[in-house]
């Protein structure tokens, strides 16, 4: 495990922060801690982090606003760690730009496995078989870049891998469950809204009219399909 990987934990509960920190350090990450959203924003200026874990209920600036602020300037994977039981909060967090969520109490091993999947897949360089092209969209597996009509598109790594999965199987329907397991590293069935939300974000980047998609199609009740 490369020591260069770093994770930021934004959590006001000392005990949970300690647990997360210990787990992440055991996995070999350098951990940046923040108790408040303000502190997290300051740390982000100086530190390069590869993944951010955010509690939704924070003192001062709320988790949701922090996610929006981070997303405005960065494509870093953001995972919500929440004790909120109301699924509206989770959906709001995903819409604000988070890539995944875990609810407390979580199983640390599962969370670590998911983070590992997100980050490991981001550095895959050699086993991508062919150049991935779909209409005006072109994927560069070697640099994890996405080009639209030759212009680079700012996509997160998760977005990149969802696109790679969909274009790799273009013309075929991929279920949300399949994507959650392949891209997000879920070991069990997860919440399909995580995928829905990411697809929504992707469309606003790759489609001419995100409301009437021509490349990334929804197959109602089954999943998503990339235009062949």
């Amino acid at each position: 495990m490369g020591t260069s990987r770093s994770a930021m934990v934004v959590e006001d509960d000392d005990a949970i922060r300690l647990v997360l920190r210990t787990n992440l350090e055991d996995e070999g990450y350098r951990v940046v801690e923040a108790v408040t959203a303000e502190q997290a924003l300051v740390e982000m200026i100086d530190e390069r982090v590869d993944v951010v874990l955010v509690d939704l209920r924070l003192p001062g600036i709320q988790g949701l606003d922090l996610i929006r602020s981070l997303r405005a300037t960065s494509q870093v994977p953001i995972i919500i760690v929440t004790a909120q039981t109301d699924s509206h909060d989770v959906v709001a967090g995903l819409e604000a730009g988070a890539d995944d969520y875990v609810t407390k109490p979580f199983v640390s091993k599962e969370l670590m496995a998911r983070i590992r999947t997100l980050l490991r897949r981001a550095s895959v360089t050699d086993d991508e078989p062919q150049q991935l092209v779909c209409g005006p969209i072109e994927l560069r597996p070697d640099t994890a870049e996405v080009l639209r009509n030759g212009e680079p598109l700012p996509v997160s790594r998760i977005e990149f891998f969802v696109l790679a999965e969909l274009i790799g199987a273009r013309g075929k329907v991929l279920t949300r469950d399949h994507l959650l397991r392949k891209v997000w590293g879920y070991g069990t069935a997860g919440d399909g809204r995580v995928v829905d939300n990411l697809v929504y974000r992707l469309r606003s980047k790759i489609e001419d009219d995100p409301a009437a998609p021509e490349l990334l199609m929804t197959v109602r009740g089954f999943g998503y399909r990339m235009k062949a």
Binding site: D13, A15, I16, L18, V19, A83, K104, P105, S108
Partner: peptide
């Protein structure tokens, strides 16, 4: 949930 998370963790 919060204390349980830290205890479980």
């Amino acid at each position: 949930r919060s204390p349980l998370t830290s205890v479980l963790g």
